[in-house]
């Protein structure tokens, strides 16, 4: 950590004083802000989509119009509050994309990789999250509309939410390539390979457009449950690895140093 140009004052003892020290003198403060923004975003995303709006796990794709209208009225408050939060925090996605783009800039690969990744993933927020949120909010706000229209909204919301994965597929492929080509060891190789699994889940969801029930519908065992598990493992892995990246960052060139042996006592 000798890359810091001017030596900062020594770290004070108290908890709050230390926080203040980090705020003023820690050269990584901006990276940490981005990391915490990303961390909070994924926590809130889970709370909003699983607990408040009841979108994950998704309701049944085979429901008739009456049942769909009832679903909208049952979840009216959860949908409005949940997606209200979602619209407020959706900007935090940018911090996630930025940090991942930053990780690729630290690699020994062309700048084209982070630019392409950021462009694609900022686009992917729309089909992956916002479109579903907008559609379901419209449904919750206009309960007196024709049930046929409401069930169209319901179908459209869940099909875009689960089924539109092409942008994620290409984005993941770009990140994977960058990690596998990189010589600065920003990410371990196994995470590069794990991208293959995440990428394949985006292929697996395609049958959602065809089936209304069974393992390949939008709430199916294979297309929803297995896919979501893989996605959760993948997301947890990259959040942890990005934290480690911030810890390891030396603001230099070349190979990124390993963590300063916290396991020295163990070894």
């Amino acid at each position: 950590m000798s890359a810091v140009p001017t030596a900062p004052p020594p770290r004070p003892a108290g908890r709050w004083a230390r926080l203040g020290w980090h705020w003023r003198h820690d050269p990584k403060i901006e990276l940490w802000i981005m990391w915490w923004a990303m961390f909070c975003f994924y926590q809130l995303f889970g709370v909003v989509f699983a607990l408040m709006t009841r979108v994950m796990p998704p309701p049944k794709p085979w429901w008739g119009q009456a049942r769909i209208v009832q679903w909208f009225s049952d979840n009216h408050d959860g949908l409005l509050w949940g997606f209200g939060i979602c619209f407020l925090i959706s900007g935090l996605v940018a911090s996630c994309n930025a940090l991942i783009g930053y990780s690729m800039r630290r690699m020994s690969v062309s700048r084209a990789f982070p630019y392409a990744y950021i462009a694609i993933y900022s686009l992917s927020t729309l089909p992956g999250m916002l479109l579903a949120a907008i559609l379901l909010t419209v449904g919750a706000m206009r309960p007196d509309r024709d049930p046929a229209i409401l069930s169209w909204i319901y179908d459209a919301a869940f099909m875009t939410f689960v089924g539109t994965m092409g942008v994620f597929l290409v984005g993941t492929a770009i990140w994977m390539l960058a990690i596998l080509l990189d010589r600065n060891r920003v990410f371990p190789l196994w995470f590069g390979y794990l991208n293959i699994c995440n990428l394949l889940t985006e292929v697996v969801v395609a049958p959602v457009w065809i089936f209304q029930e069974g393992p390949f519908a939008w709430n199916g065992v294979i297309t929803f449950w297995v896919d979501t598990l893989v996605f959760v493992v993948y997301t947890a892995a990259f959040i942890t690895l990005l934290r480690r990246l911030v810890l390891r960052e030396d603001f230099g060139e070349g190979v990124l140093p390993d963590l300063a042996a916290p396991s020295a006592g163990r070894a």
Binding site: P188, L189, W190, Y193, V226, V230, V233
Partner: peptide, 13 residues
Amino acid sequence: ADIWYLVGFEALV
């Protein structure tokens, strides 16, 4: 060792 992580994960899926 890294490729074996992938093999294990794919085998699980």
